[in-house]
Amino acid sequence: MIPVIESEVSQHGWMTTQEFTDIIAISGMSPGPVTANSAILVGYSTAGLAGAISSALGILLPAIIFVTVIATFFSKLNHYPVVQSMFYGLRPIVTSLIIFAAISLALSNHMIAVNFSWHTISLLLVFGLSLFALMKLRWHPAYVIILSGLVGVVLYS
């Protein structure tokens, strides 16, 4: 979706590619979906707060329409055996999607690398300790993120 936003933005002359790249970086750093975040920032830099709000509404409106339609169908169809068979196959696929997302993110952060450097090892250590805190100590993910940020300041500055 980001390439689509990019082409629309440059077509309308709202900002340069460089500015847009910065916006993607901020969107990635913020919580929430990157696409929604970048739309909000494009709106803000083009037309201030009103621009940000209208971009946010523009992103949210299709979602609520799609979801309402699908959810209405789904609650009617859920009792058919064939729909239950579909979900039997869909649930493992969703797990694959999540694992795939984790691997892609790990690759883009250089967490998985061919030549093991101190950097890679330290990132894997942060990963392992975070997973341990989440699964075994049952920490809230927000604490893990905050503590991890502090560890990052110590390790990588």
């Binding site: 984790a102 993110l105 952060n109 990132l123 894997l124 993120i145 560890v151 990588y156």
Partner: peptide, 12 residues
């Protein structure tokens, strides 16, 4: 840098 590694852990 560190937070992104933790995000991978949360997704895992």
């Amino acid at each position: 840098i560190s937070i992104r590694a933790s995000i991978v852990a949360i997704i895992a």
